[in-house]
């Protein structure tokens, strides 16, 4: 559908990638760990290695959870915007095919939150 307006209505998006001075926005959430109320949001350089995202911003956000240090990245599974996704941790975000405002969700098999309660 398109908007019904009483005059020409032409506005650009407020969050185009070029507005972020070379960075792209990436969101990451951790499945079955509801302690974190929502996925989080970062502006990241597209040439940042995926592993650096895990060790840097993600560790900073998620390491308060005792499951974080037990996470095994060789068995972790990922989705991107709800679709299966297999990142290569040694390659850059761009080379992993990530686009501006992609939303990632990761699952850490065997880790099910505090007391196994998904929290």
């Amino acid at each position: 559908m398109t908007i019904i307006a009483n005059a020409p209505y032409d506005f650009t998006s407020n969050d185009r990638q070029e507005d972020f001075r070379g960075a792209m926005l990436v969101y990451v959430g951790w499945a079955r760990h509801m302690m974190f109320a929502s996925p989080y949001c970062w502006p990241l350089p597209p040439d940042m290695p995926f592993g650096a995202l895990v060790e840097g911003p993600m560790a900073q956000a998620f390491a308060q959870h005792p499951d974080w240090e037990q996470a095994d990245w060789s068995t972790a599974t990922w989705t991107r915007n709800g679709e299966p996704f297999t990142p290569d941790l040694s390659k850059s975000l761009a080379d992993n095919g990530l686009s501006h405002k992609d939303s990632l969700m990761f699952t850490t098999p065997g880790l099910d939150g505090i007391g196994g309660m998904g929290f």
Partner: peptide, 12 residues
Amino acid sequence: GTPFEAATPPQQ
């Protein structure tokens, strides 16, 4: 003495 707090902005 280590209260939980989110330091990163959320997805909206």
